[in-house]
């Protein structure tokens, strides 16, 4: 062992340090970009559209599961799991829209219309589960169930468009 001489500064290391700091700062900046705030009522409406998306997705899931089951492509137990998840999602959407606090009465009107549509969606999804429980294997899907699912899907889509329009009007103002 010998006593140490002091080591000269390394220019490479200094440059590397600067580069690393710049990278970290850039990452932090780009990450924080989308955090910009939204107006309160627009925010509420966006949350309503999210819930309507969930309701629409639940209806579509139920429809796919019913079709697959009717074609004999999906085991009954698996179809049941899929549709019961869809029931949970759809009723969760109703609950979320129903309990949402909105800032003004105009927004509340939009919310109520969306609530009606999401309530319409729950019915056919739940009856899909009932059909699954009572039907024999490979029984064709009853046309009225499929129709009800389609109607629910249309209702949700309409409400979605209405809410989106209201939101963009709000944003424009």
């Amino acid at each position: 062992m010998r006593p140490v001489p002091s080591r000269p500064r390394s220019a490479t290391a200094r440059r590397a340090l600067t580069a690393a700091t710049a990278c970290a700062a850039l990452a932090a900046l780009t990450a924080c970009g989308p955090a910009a705030g939204r107006a309160e009522s627009t925010d509420a409406l966006l949350s309503v559209t999210d819930q309507l998306d969930a309701a629409g997705s639940a209806v579509a899931t139920a429809r796919l599961a019913v079709e697959a089951r009717a074609d004999g492509h999906l085991p009954a137990v698996t179809a049941d799991a899929a549709i019961s998840d869809a029931v949970e999602t759809a009723s969760g959407a109703v609950h979320a829209i129903g309990t949402l606090v909105v800032p003004d009465s105009a927004t509340d009107q939009v919310r109520r219309a969306a609530l009606d549509a999401s309530e319409i969606a729950v019915g056919p999804v739940a009856s899909a589960r009932t059909w699954l429980g009572t039907s024999a294997a490979d029984a064709a899907a009853p046309p009225d169930l499929l129709d009800a699912l389609d109607d629910a899907s249309t209702a949700v889509e309409r409400a979605h468009a209405a809410v989106q329009q209201a939101a963009s009007e709000r944003a424009a103002r």
Binding site: D53, S57, A68, G72, L74, P75, T89
Partner: peptide
């Protein structure tokens, strides 16, 4: 294309059922 957002594991079986039926799902 069906407008489904995945929020449950059960939805994974739907494309598989469409493609390969009960056996592939199993």
């Amino acid at each position: 294309p069906a407008g489904i957002q995945v929020d449950a594991m059960s939805q994974l079986t739907l494309p598989v059922a469409q493609a390969g039926g009960t056996l592939l799902v199993a």
